[in-house]
Amino acid sequence: MRGRDARVGILFAMPWIMGFLIFMAYPLVASLVTSFTNFSILRPPSFIGIDNYKELFHDQVFYKSLGNTLLYVLGAVPLTTVAAIALALLLNTKVKGMSFYRTMFFLPTLVPMVALGTLFLWVFNGDYGLLKAGFAKVHMSSPNWLGDPAWSKWTLILISMWGCGQAMVIYLAGLQDVPVSLYEAAELDGAKAWAKTKNVTLPMISPVILFNVVMGIIGALQIFAVPYIMFPNGAPARSAYFYAMYLYDNAFQYQRMGYASAMGWVLFLITLTLTLIALKLSNKHVHYESN
């Protein structure tokens, strides 16, 4: 019986195991090997031991881009998590026109990056921007969101809010799985709305929250497209230069694929560490029905 169970389990997982072996195993191993070589894509790699990693530890731009990225993760992940849950809760109420609202909130994730980039360049413009005009209305001076090195990262963190539609959809789907009976029981106990949310809803969707937080960390650590469009080369003065941008530049602008691979694997370790911390912290709070 045991052996049969195991066989069924592996059989069900087979597509992924095959896919992993065919499409992922080789590229992953190859990139790890590459990180110990001097490789320009165009010339055959030559083995240089841990030179790339040693160079990384002395590389000022590596630290700069890593610092920028970690700050972004710390800012954007909590912000979008709270925003997405709040929105999902709001959108899960039985109010007329909900289909419409849900679509509205999801829309920004559909707008192509180019359009999003040009729009936000205008919204945050330090001279004629929408935000500056808003500040002026209440007689406050607004910072130069894009041009001031002290502000550019915060601008991006703020912008990350518009992308919370994706997580929101996942929460919405998660909320559908919360049994109505639990709410009824809580109501009988005289629980108020907030207590219901705290004691019923959040524990019930905690596996989904964990999913979104982990994916949020992974995604935020690899942030690339929006700053790439809005802050070319991380200007001003590399204040918006992120890890993935530096990695990309090394790989394809500077033709240092070996170095870029080393960067990739260092990022892997950082991501892994942060994810494990998130998993550890969540252990007590994530509630699985099936266990």
Partner: peptide
């Protein structure tokens, strides 16, 4: 499986 998502794409792009 989770770890495969943590390796940035540019690094595995060439292989």
């Amino acid at each position: 499986t989770l770890a495969t998502m943590m390796v940035p794409f540019p690094v595995v792009m060439v292989p």
